[in-house]
C-alpha cells in the first residue's frame, strides 16, 4: 500500500472499530436490542476467530512439500501450551519463537 492508502485504511479501521464500541450507546439506551442482534453478537466471536486463523494461513501452500507441516506443528504447540498453562503470553511467545526457529534454522 502507498502511504496515503495506509492512512486511509487506518482511518477506516478507527471509525469501524469505534462504531462497534459505540453501537449499543447509540441505539439501545432506551430500547432493548432485538433478539437477532443479541444472537449475532453472542455467537459470532468464536466463528470469526476460527476464520482468522485460516486467514493468517492463506499464504501457506498446503499442496506442495512440506504441506504446511511447520504451521500445523506450531499451531499444535501453541494450543497445547495454552490449554496446559492458560497464559496467553507464554503460548504466543513460545509458539512464535518455535516457528521462527523452524523457518530460520530447519526448513
Amino acid at each position: 500500500m502507498s502511504t496515503n492508502e495506509l492512512y486511509m485504511a487506518i482511518i477506516v479501521m478507527t471509525f469501524a472499530n469505534f462504531l462497534t464500541r459505540v453501537f449499543p450507546f447509540l441505539f439501545f439506551v432506551k430500547h432493548e436490542p432485538p433478539a437477532w442482534v443479541v444472537f449475532i453478537e453472542k455467537n459470532f466471536p468464536p466463528i470469526i476467530m476460527t476464520i482468522l486463523i485460516f486467514y493468517t494461513l492463506t499464504s501457506v501452500d498446503f499442496t506442495t512439500a512440506p504441506y504446511g507441516m511447520k504451521e500445523i506443528i506450531a499451531i499444535a504447540l501453541t494450543a497445547f501450551l495454552h490449554i496446559r498453562f492458560n497464559n496467553y503470553l507464554v503460548s504466543i511467545f513460545i509458539g512464535t519463537i518455535f516457528y521462527m526457529g523452524l523457518v530460520q534454522f530447519i526448513v
Partner: peptide
C-alpha cells in the same frame, strides 16, 4: 517467521 505471532494470537 515473526508473522506467526498473529496466527498464535488467534489460536489463543
Amino acid at each position: 517467521g515473526l508473522e506467526f505471532s498473529l496466527t498464535a494470537l488467534f489460536v489463543v
